[in-house]
Design a binder for these strands. Structure first.
Lengths: 139, 139
DNA sequence: AGTATTTTTGCAAATTTGTCGCAATTTTTG
DNA sequence: CAAAAATTGCGACAAATTTGCAAAAATACT
């Protein structure tokens, strides 16, 4: 078991939850790094749809996964606890999602901006929408 | 007809689409500046749900409206083409949404970042999630 | 303006997405 | 290993979104 898997198990235990097969397999699946929709997850794993929903809800509450809002669909990916902070480019036409690797300058701006208000920031997500290489000449 | 309405008509024409009543009224409705959900739109206009969905999809592809993610719901508002660019702070606890006024430094970072790829950016949205002043001492 | 052509809309039905209670199964406790 | 606790699968629902197609509206062309 690698470091991430150990930390994952620890989070579940500490919060009084069981380490079950569906939870282990979902965590492993998301370990690929790709943001996935519920449907993609359901077809990749041999578990009931409702189990997937319940597991995702739990993972969100424990901070293991985050929901990212991409296009019309919601997708899920591991939180910054398990992978590098990043944002997304989404294609307006075909829906494809490309990760955008972390940028210091950007993160500084966001941190700076948040700190100015009496609002207490917890996290943030940036979506840059546009046309991917393949879809650029369709509109 | 004001400047916005003319530009709107021009965008439709140029892309080979008709200027119809449902389209005109949806554009006008969103002109209020408030981000609206599909349900709010459907009850405000005398057109079929599927028409609203199809119109919103078209408007998105033409860059007339953008989908904004406020908490767990998606809403729609006019794009930067028709109203001032802004981002949102959303309260994790009470769901309140606060507009965040434009910040040069942030926008520069984003512009710089977008231009590096073969992806063609159209717009972007940033959601900063956290706790508003009233909800800060509840957790 | 009037008609042919093209595009869009409404309607009904299908599909997809998300929720819930409860009995059966799995995990944890000790 | 047995008892207790937590989790899962199933089925029934409810809500959200998509689709095919005939009717209606918009546009193009005399």
């Amino acid at each position: 078991m690698n470091r991430e898997a150990i930390q994952f198990a620890k989070i579940l235990k500490k919060s009084g939850h069981s380490l079950t097969d569906p939870r282990k397999r979902l965590f492993k699946l998301l370990g690929s790094g790709k943001a996935m929709s519920v449907n993609e997850i359901v077809s990749a794993l041999p578990y009931d749809r409702s189990t997937i929903y319940r597991t995702l809800e739990l993972f969100q509450k424990l901070g293991i996964v985050v929901e990212v809002h991409l296009g019309w669909k919601h997708k899920f990916e591991l939180s910054d606890m398990f992978q590098h902070h990043h944002h997304h480019l989404t294609c307006i036409n075909c829906g494809k999602v490309l990760p955008l690797k972390e940028d210091k300058e950007l993160e500084n701006s966001i941190a700076h901006l948040s700190s100015r208000s009496s609002f207490k920031p917890v996290d943030h997500q940036l979506e840059i929408r546009g046309f991917c290489m393949n879809c650029q000449n369709k509109y």
